[in-house]
Amino acid sequence: MGALRAHGIAATLPAGWDGRISVRRDGIPDQLVAASGTRVLAARSRPVVHLANFGLPADRGDFGSGAVELMGDGDVFVVLFEHEPEASAAALFRAAGLPRTLTARDFDPTTLRRGIAGQSGHQAFFHEPGRAFCLYVVLGSHARRARLVPEVNRVLATVTFAPSPAK
C-alpha cells in the first residue's frame, strides 16, 4: 500500500495505485506587504491530488488531460482540486465533506471534461473545514461502472484532510 501525505491531505492507496499530491501556483494572487512597505503580489499555491489505478504519465493537466487518454476499461482516475479557501463559503461548495460513497448512478459520460468515447465522469464540490474542493472522477468504461465505482470508494474512504494546509 502506498501512503501519500502532503499539504494537509492524506490518502492510503491500494496495491498497484499511483498517486501524487502536488501544488499548483495559479491561484488568485495575494497582496503581500514587504518589510520595506513595498506591496507585492504572490500567487497562492493550492494542492491538487491525482490518484489512479494505472501509471500516471509525467505530463498531465490538473484534471487529467494527458492521463485520461491512456485509460483502459478497468482504469479509474480521481482528482481532488482545492480552490481558494474563501470559496468554502460559496453556495457551490455548501456540501459538507468529501462524498465517499459514490454509486453507479452518479456517473455520466456527459460529465467528462474531455469527452472520450466509452468513459464516464462524476464531479462534486464540497468543503472541509476552511477548505473548498472539487472532486472529479473518471471511469475508463461507463459500461463497467458497477465494478469500478467500488474501487473509487475504496480509495475515497482513506482520504483525510487537515483543517488547514501544512505550511
Binding site: 502506498g2 501512503a3 501519500l4 492507496l13 499511483d18 489505478n53 494505472f54 501509471g55
Partner: peptide, 9 residues
Amino acid sequence: GDAVAVGIL
C-alpha cells in the same frame, strides 16, 4: 516536495 506513490504490483 510533491507526495508521490508508484503502483508496481
